Computed example of a mutant assay.
Amino acid sequence: MKQDKLITVKEVVLKNYCPECYSNEGMQLTFKQRFIETTFYRRITNDIKHIISCKTCDSVIYPVQWDEHIERVFEYQKKAFTPKKASRQFKKPAYIIFALVAVALIGIAAILIYNGTTTEP
């Protein structure tokens, strides 16, 4: 079972005017990073999403609506943002499968070596 979700890594309050309600309070820039969890591993990816929203009028501000001030602030925050390092962490079931495969390979190798060294009279 694969669970794919976005984790909020950083939230920044912006002092820009909202293009919808013209309020200069309540604008928020949120950076989210993709997190994948399965039965065998947890993984943090390099996939970063961002969203600018206004908490005053409860609307999402899409890039088409940005003015030059919002775009400038976004570019600055994007450069200042450091995402979590991409990683993969295996869980207990994965290690059990790895161990079983290793034991099976060692057993097969031992059988092949034993059959190769015996001589028939």
Rank of each mutant, 00 (worst) to 15 (best):
A94W: 03
V101P: 05
Y62K: 03
G107K: 10
H69W: 04
I97Y: 09
G107V: 06
A109W: 06
F74D: 05
K85Q: 08
R88M: 12
A94C: 05
A102N: 02
A110E: 07
L112M: 14
A94Y: 08
A94P: 01
L100C: 11
A110K: 12
Q89I: 08
P63C: 05
L100Q: 03
K78W: 07
I70W: 00
Q77G: 03
K84P: 01
K92S: 03
K84Q: 09
Y76W: 03
F90C: 03
Y62Q: 06
R88D: 03
F90G: 05
Y95L: 13
E71N: 12
Q77A: 12
I111M: 10
F90Y: 14
S59K: 14
V101L: 12
A102H: 01
E75Q: 14
V103Y: 05
Y95R: 10
Y95Q: 09
A99T: 15
I97L: 13
F98Y: 10
G107I: 08
T82W: 01
S87G: 08
K79A: 07
I111L: 14
F98C: 04
I108R: 05
P63N: 03
L112G: 13
I97K: 09
A86D: 07
A80D: 15
A104N: 08
V64K: 12
L112Q: 15
K91M: 01
I70S: 00
A86V: 10
H69G: 07
Q89G: 00
I97C: 05
A102R: 00
I61M: 11
I70N: 00
K78G: 08
P93I: 15
R88A: 05
A86S: 14
A94F: 10
Q65D: 10
S59Q: 09
F74Y: 14
I70F: 00
V101H: 02
V60H: 06
K78L: 12
I97D: 01
L112F: 13
Y95K: 07
Q65K: 02
K78M: 12
A86R: 15
I111K: 05
I111Y: 13
P63S: 03
I70A: 00
K84Y: 10
L112H: 14
F74T: 09
Y62A: 03
V64H: 02
Q65V: 00
H69K: 09
Q77I: 02
F98N: 01
K79C: 01
K79Q: 09
E71S: 13
P83F: 06
